[in-house]
Design a protein around this nucleic acid. Structure first.
Length: 422
DNA sequence: TCTGGGGTCCTAGGACCC
DNA sequence: TCTGGGGTCCTAGGACCC
């Protein structure tokens, strides 16, 4: 029988900040979303104060001051790099590894002897800490869902001390009882509300609930969830994630904008980023959807619109994507609106080796591919945005640009921001 | 629910076909 | 134009994840 281990980084973004600023250890720390909007990572000290995940930060001002909470803007360059380092360490323990998210990986540890599993967990924990500075927790079980329950308890229980083996079903009743239903993987707040109304408040009750009743509300995923809680695996380890099906680039603006020219700059900038993502994945897009919206917390004046355009030939060429996006933008732009956010989705993605060209194609695809490759290379070597498109506007004169008022340094990915040992 | 961004999967319903 | 069953494809919307 398969045994999954999930390795989960504790308070990941906060831990990354602490690696490069150890004086933050033991202190309350929050990391914010883009535009410094809401809390996306909290240290244990902050969790105890009752600030929840996703809490809008402007509502927490008083608490922040009272407790001297250290607040950081998110620094994805740093977190992405630290994440790669953690995965690198894990890959030395296990070839069968699925990188599930920026701070979680599943390992197939079926070949480890039962009486050595906890020891393996401890070794993984110590090694990741030693090589990266990041504290992790480990949960083990016969299904992914149960391993998530195990890792949650591993963090909470002082006795477990960060590692919990939940393969033995004799511990299941107790563990599932200790897990509120809203903390079960695949149960969001809407399903949680529904389940509680029907008297299901913990994972044990969910496991023992009537399958058809759950299926009616939650569909096949509900059925799978119950099976997984019973120890029957429905989700295998996915070592090679299938290629992306959509690419989205969107941002809330640092300040609301009202003019078409500012929106054009923003949309051109996002288009450039989206095209880079495509090329990184060796994909091309056949469909592009552009959208703009005003402040969604002001329903009286809310405006949202999208336009979808089909590209004649599936492409990852920046200028073509910019052109299509701007065409769509002009169709949905409305005067007298204060826009808060814009973005684009790319879909109908296919490998760039399989592009179907049309007869009488006006673009020299080979040449433009070479141009894009050179551009990506220059930006990779000289720094992001060394070469950009004029339509994206000039750096420094973009009022719409995202605000990061509390950003730490990109300690590991930028030469000018390396930590200095004194 | 809740003031970010980037994803995935599932389902219901409509259009259209034979 | 309606009557019937059965199927596919597409899209929008809803739910979830981190």
């Amino acid at each position: 029988m398969t045994v999954f281990a999930i390795v989960d980084c504790n308070n990941f973004y906060v831990s990354c900040e602490r690696v490069f600023n150890p004086s933050l250890n033991g202190k309350p720390v929050i990391v914010l979303s883009n535009n410094d909007g809401c809390a996306v990572a909290r240290s244990n000290e902050v969790k105890k104060l009752g600030i929840s995940m996703g809490a809008p930060i402007f509502k927490q001002k008083a608490l922040i001051e009272k407790h001297g909470i250290h607040v950081f803007s998110s620094n994805y360059a740093l977190y992405g790099d630290m994440s790669r380092r953690v995965v690198h360490v894990l890959s030395e323990f296990c070839d069968d590894l699925e990188v599930y998210s920026i701070d979680e990986s599943f390992l197939d540890i079926s070949s480890t002897r039962a009486d050595q599993r906890t020891e393996l967990g401890r070794t993984i924990r110590a090694t990741v800490k030693k090589h990266t500075g990041i504290p992790v927790s480990v949960g083990m079980a016969h299904t992914k869902t149960l391993s998530k329950i195990a890792v949650r308890l591993a963090k909470k229980s002082p006795k477990a001390d960060g590692v919990l083996d939940l393969t033995d079903s004799k511990h299941h009743d107790k563990a599932l009882e200790l897990t509120p239903v809203e903390d079960v993987w695949a149960v969001g707040w809407r399903y949680a509300r529904f389940l509680k109304v029907h008297g299901i408040t913990n994972a044990r009750q969910l496991r023992d609930a009537d399958k058809n009743f759950i299926k009616k509300k939650m569909g096949v995923n509900g059925t799978r969830l119950i099976e997984e809680l019973k120890g029957v695996p429905c989700y295998p380890l996915d070592k090679n994630p299938s290629p992306k099906k959509n690419i989205t680039v969107s941002r809330s603006f640092g300040k609301p904008v009202s003019t078409l020219s500012e929106l054009r700059e923003a949309v051109a900038t996002y288009s450039t980023r989206a095209a880079e993502k495509l090329r990184n994945e060796h994909l091309t897009a056949g469909l592009i959807t552009v959208f703009i919206m005003t402040d969604r917390f002001k329903p009286e004046s809310f405006y949202y619109n999208t336009r979808t355009l089909r590209l004649d030939v599936s492409t990852s060429n920046s200028p073509e994507i910019i052109r299509a996006a701007l065409t769509g933008l002009e169709e949905i732009f409305r005067k007298d609106c204060l826009y808060k956010k814009a973005g684009l989705h790319l879909s109908e993605l296919s490998p760039d080796s399989m592009v179907q060209t049309v007869m009488f194609d006006s673009i020299d695809r080979e040449r433009s591919a070479q141009l894009m490759a050179s551009l990506d290379k220059i930006n990779a070597v000289m720094g992001k945005d060394t070469l950009t498109y004029a339509s994206a506007g000039l750096k420094g004169s973009r009022p719409w640009q995202v605000m990061f008022n509390h950003r730490s340094n990109a300690w590991t990915t930028r030469w000018d921001q390396l930590p200095i040992v004194t």
